[in-house]
Design a protein around this nucleic acid. Structure first.
Lengths: 193, 193
DNA sequence: CAAGTAACCTACTCCGAGTAAGCTTGACCC
DNA sequence: GGGTCAAGCTTACTCGGAGTAGGTTACTTG
């Protein structure tokens, strides 16, 4: 099997088994065996067990960034952009449940500094997107308020995503709606302080 | 040294070194050596490395529950109660930075199922407190809305707490105020849906 | 066909979690 | 005093998993 294909297989298997049994409880030998190869191949391609996890996270991160970026194309207003971004986010976390719970339940911090940095980068990316968005419709709000609000939204989304994937009766649209209702009015009031 | 005292010492050392170098990168031998004893003593008292982490988390969880519970005594309204609870929460995360980052950056999920369950219990506790509070002033709102809102608040608090402990210019009161401004109006609007 | 390289293997080393078995010191009882 | 029991502690292991050294096979390319 060519390298690129084998790497994808390894990442898919790793994502599945890490999410299922946890990072610590999973041995590299396990993953290798499920792929039908031996352990040194994984070290050849990913350098370390943590490197394999980082690759999984990075791939998911790239896909999330792509999905949310594309979703806001053609938005009619800041509110519309925020809502579209939220829907895309919740859809992503729903279709990539394994990768997402991997990030959040987060084996990452425990796995090592590189994996932890990858997760922090993901959050920082989301925070920056939100700050930019808020600034666009609240140009007079102080920077510290925008940043705090962005962290509030990012945290709210993280938790709500984990909650709603555990419920079959809540859709991505409803989750996005909920964040909008809960936060939108408050966000707008920031400019009055 | 008597057992109770030794246990406290071990937990203090573990909290420090886990938060500093990470759970995986820390060996039980390290912790034992810093305590001036040998490894089997830790196994005698805590059963496993994960057991030691669970003990640290549980202690912090108990303290947090105590602090937030006490803070709302004598509150004049639901809004006052929520604000007092938030301030107590942010003060806790500030004074117990090590324990808090231990929980959230969360070595826990990686450490094993018992530690992960401990963290989930902590979040569930917070969610239930919030649901009860919201119900008290929004008796007509559907249960699913209350629960979703509680997850939003818990997630927002988690993220904001990690952000604000990294900034010296933000106080617990300001962080609590921020959550109140961002969320309070939206919360109240839920009843109109 | 020779040479190189991609994909793969077996067979290790080493470290850290967890354990077996026993030592020491002091309290308490007769 | 001596016997006994327990708490606190130790040394000296086992065992499993991360990571590595070095070699083999097979396909491509000059």
């Amino acid at each position: 099997m060519p390298r690129a294909e084998r790497e994808q297989q390894m990442m898919a298997v790793a994502e599945e088994v890490f999410a299922e049994r946890g990072y610590v409880a999973t041995s590299v030998d396990d993953i290798a065996e499920r792929c039908g190869v031996s352990k040194p191949m994984i070290y050849e391609y990913f350098g370390s067990k943590e490197g394999l996890l980082v690759a999984c996270i990075r791939q998911a991160r790239t896909e999330l960034a792509k999905a949310t970026t594309e979703s806001v194309i053609g938005a009619q207003s800041a509110e519309d952009a925020l809502r579209r971004g939220l829907v895309a986010f919740f859809e992503f976390t729903d279709t990539h449940r394994r990768a997402w719970s991997l990030m959040l339940r987060s084996e990452a911090a425990v796995a090592g500094p590189a994996a932890a940095a990858e997760i922090e980068a993901l959050r920082q990316e989301q925070v920056e997107i939100d700050v930019a968005l808020f600034r666009s419709f609240l140009p007079d709000a102080p920077e510290v308020e925008l940043e705090a609000s962005a962290h509030v939204v990012v945290g709210a989304c993280e938790r709500l995503s984990l909650w709603y994937v555990s419920r079959d009766d809540v859709t991505a649209e409803q989750a996005a709606d909920h964040i909008m209702r809960a936060l939108w009015t408050g966000m707008q009031s920031l400019v009055r302080d």
